[in-house]
């Protein structure tokens, strides 16, 4: 059975696109057939993070408008043949998305893939609501800081009200992914702790992604962090989260880059 996931947050810049790419690649590395869809029409980014920006011919809007067929718009990843991207249009805006069009595209993708991961734009408007509309489950990406947490709370409310599943009276499954977490800073009270975030959002935790320069490095070379450096701490955290999505029981630990004690102490002081 194909699973439709939406990666959402409300707030911008918390790591939705990075997480979509990293989780998509992690699931594909396990052998599942995966497609990631960019719903950020007009401000697309997922193609860059996936390193596919030079191969975009058709996009989601072309498929919705009937200009192109779905297989023509799908871009197969060069490194992982069962990882695919359906890019957004950069020249249009969110009004070009229609509910029926999105439903048709997702229905067709369900026949071809195990995982359909919708990368939501920031905000709570049309793009974001249509990205979540047909989801079976949601990954709520949150940074351990108050504005991000409040926006996530808002998004959780919308997931429980505006999705097809919720309207049918079913429960949409929700997973919390805390990104850019720094255990040292949380301990010093400079950011919310995981306990704080869970207490406010009362949503099950999917994973904790540590703050790491590896994430930015991976984005800049156009590769999901789980492909670029699969031994780095964020990559290991994303692999754990992907395993939990598949239903595996993985103990919740925050991977670190295994620096020596002295390094760690200096690192904390500099942070």
């Amino acid at each position: 059975m194909a699973q439709v996931l939406v990666v959402t947050s409300g707030k911008g810049g918390v790591g939705k696109t990075t997480s979509t790419a990293a989780l998509g690649a992690a699931l594909a590395q396990n052998g599942d057939k995966v497609v990631v869809i960019d719903f950020d029409v007009g401000l697309r980014n997922l193609d860059l993070v996936m390193g596919a920006e030079r191969r975009v011919v058709f996009d989601l809007i072309n498929v919705i408008n009937g200009v192109a067929k779905l297989p023509q718009a799908l871009i197969r990843d060069k490194r992982l043949e069962n990882l695919n991207l359906l890019p957004a249009s950069q020249t249009r805006d969110k009004d070009a998305l229609t509910e029926e069009g999105v439903a048709k595209v997702i229905d067709e993708l369900k026949t071809k893939f195990d995982w359909i991961i919708c990368d939501s734009p920031a905000g709570i408007e049309r793009g974001a609501t249509l990205a979540m509309r047909y989801a079976d489950a949601a990954i709520i990406v949150t940074n351990p800081e108050v504005s991000s947490v409040r926006d996530s709370d808002r998004i959780i409310g919308l997931l429980d009200a505006k999705t097809v599943k919720a309207e049918r009276g079913e429960r949409i499954e929700k997973h919390l992914l805390v990104t850019r977490y720094s255990p040292g800073r949380a301990a010093r009270g400079e950011m919310l702790t995981i306990e704080d975030v869970l207490e406010i959002l009362s949503t099950p935790l999917l994973g904790i992604i540590p703050e790491s320069e590896e994430v930015l490095r991976a984005s800049n070379i156009g590769s999901p962090v789980t492909l670029a450096n699969s031994l780095s701490s964020p990559a290991r955290a994303y692999f754990d989260a992907a395993a939990r999505l598949r239903g595996e029981k993985v103990p919740m630990v925050v991977p670190s880059d295994g620096r020596g004690l002295l390094n760690k102490l200096f690192g904390r002081k500099a942070a």
Partner: peptide
């Protein structure tokens, strides 16, 4: 019986 979320 459910949490009341931001914006509701």
């Amino acid at each position: 019986e459910t949490p009341v979320r931001s914006g509701q």
